[in-house]
Nucleic acid binder design. Sequence first.
DNA 1: GCTGACTGGTTGATACGTCAACCAGGAGCT
DNA 2: AGCTCCTGGTTGACGTATCAACCAGTCAGC
Lengths: 163, 163
Amino acid sequence: MSDEPWLNEAEQRAWRSYLHMQRLLAARLSSRMQRDFDLSAADYEVLVNLSEAARGRMGPGELAEATQWEKSRLSHHLTRMERRGLVGREPSRTGRYPDVLLTDAGRAAIRRAAPAHAGDVRALFVDVLGPRRLARFAEDCRAVTAALEAERQPRDPAAGPGG
Amino acid sequence: MSDEPWLNEAEQRAWRSYLHMQRLLAARLSSRMQRDFDLSAADYEVLVNLSEAARGRMGPGELAEATQWEKSRLSHHLTRMERRGLVGREPSRTGRYPDVLLTDAGRAAIRRAAPAHAGDVRALFVDVLGPRRLARFAEDCRAVTAALEAERQPRDPAAGPGG
DNA sequence: GCTGACTGGTTGATACGTCAACCAGGAGCT
DNA sequence: AGCTCCTGGTTGACGTATCAACCAGTCAGC
């Protein structure tokens, strides 16, 4: 059935259903956050990670790891957020590069935004599916993720973790 | 259970599984298309829609409807694609605004890219889930989409389409 | 036929993401 | 010590997305 690359009609429909949902959901969540709290999805992610870190600070490397962003993206974004007063940078004892840290304004922003965002995720996604379907859905997502990651790392599966 | 907006641990995990998959999948598909065919996901979408249209041309309005893009996004993007020779614009008999049409280069580009893209979607998504899970998954997506759309249009459901 | 609102499209400003080039500080070698 | 390479971060350029302002036809009401 998969000799040809093409998708049959059912497959096509499924794929488009996913795409459609994904777009609407992302658009809704981010536009709300922007409108109500003046934060982009990217801002939110940085703030969440910092607020979960010990003392609200972490090295750029950890942050890059946590967000899975490219280094240049992170650097640019932190510059912008710093300009807006949401984060700061200051020399760290332990590492060679200055730490990124949450400012008071940044902390206030995430505290304001987080409950609303969680509520949106709940209302638009979690509660729509309900626990059973949600679990199944997440399982499917992990399967796809695994395929993605397997393809990227066609290394020896007997070897240890890559890092 | 949803008195508080917060997500419990299972819900949180599910949501993050989805987010993770979504990001990886989008990144993989678009970076491939960019690398191998010099097309962005946005380019691809425009080209697909045009190539499916009668005579490879449609009015800006139809295209906006088909892609679900903001008018300004569409306008900007068409300007750039026109500059690259992928699409053209020319006055239409039926409509007030010039039609957008596929150029030969645009048609060639989509013909080159489409099989690879379909193959990727199959390999990374369709075949990973298989028909049963795929169908269920799509069903879940439609449920979420419905919730999204219901929330956006809390109008009288007996009334006609809003346009 | 004029006026004013509406619709649909364009434009400019700005934020964002990616790529490639660059730069600084270590680590390893000699 | 001096070289080189490597890693991790920054920068600039450019394509992209969004918002707000603007503009051109069209149509309703007079």
